[in-house]
């Protein structure tokens, strides 16, 4: 009998990384790896699909609902497919008073997508987020791991044009 392969699994390098992460915690506390592993699978798959969550549940030997509960609690896990670049812009007070609202309005217009949407060319997804701990360098947004700070309308144009290339 052939057992069906799960549709999603870690690439060999990520599998190694995942196994290393498991060693961070005492015996029997492997559920602690849940958040890092969800980041890892999302980095691989682009988003956190139900299949990806089921795979992680299986990997950690926990119930799928325990993964759903966690993945829906935190804001960084994309529960829907996203564009190539996810732009997470800070909408909180300190960035707002430094002109964030105008800059972000321009950003949305420029890429042709509103909050939570993906641009028609599937390149950009816009996600408003709360404070990114870069208040003195605002307005700011984040794309994957990179912070873009001191944003102005001109700077947004440059960044987006660069990413479109």
């Amino acid at each position: 009998m052939i057992t069906e392969k799960p549709r999603i699994q870690f690439t060999p390098e990520r599998l190694e990384r995942a196994r290393e992460i498991l060693t961070h915690y005492p015996e029997g506390k492997q559920k602690s790896a849940l958040l890092p592993l969800l980041h890892l699978i999302q980095e691989q798959e682009g988003w956190t699909s139900p299949e990806a969550m089921d795979y992680i549940a299986d990997f950690l030997g926990i119930k799928p609902i325990e993964v759903y509960e966690v993945a829906t609690f935190y804001t960084m896990y994309h529960l829907e497919p996203v564009g190539k670049h996810v732009i997470e812009y800070c909408r909180t007070g300190p960035c707002m008073i430094m002109g964030g609202e105008e800059v972000y309005a321009h950003l949305k217009k420029k890429i042709g997508a509103d909050d939570g949407e993906t641009s028609p060319d599937n390149l950009f997804t816009i996600k408003p987020v709360e404070c990114l701990a870069a208040c003195g360098w605002g307005p700011c947004f984040q794309i994957r791991e990179k912070y873009y700070t001191h944003l102005t309308i001109e700077k947004v144009d440059e960044i987006i044009d660069e990413l479109k290339k």
């Binding site: 961070h24 958040l35 890092p36 980041h39 609690f73 935190y74 804001t75 960084m76 896990y77 404070c131």
Partner: peptide, 12 residues
Amino acid sequence: LELYVQPGGGAY
């Protein structure tokens, strides 16, 4: 001593 870094998931 073993020291590890743990990332959160986005929650104040």
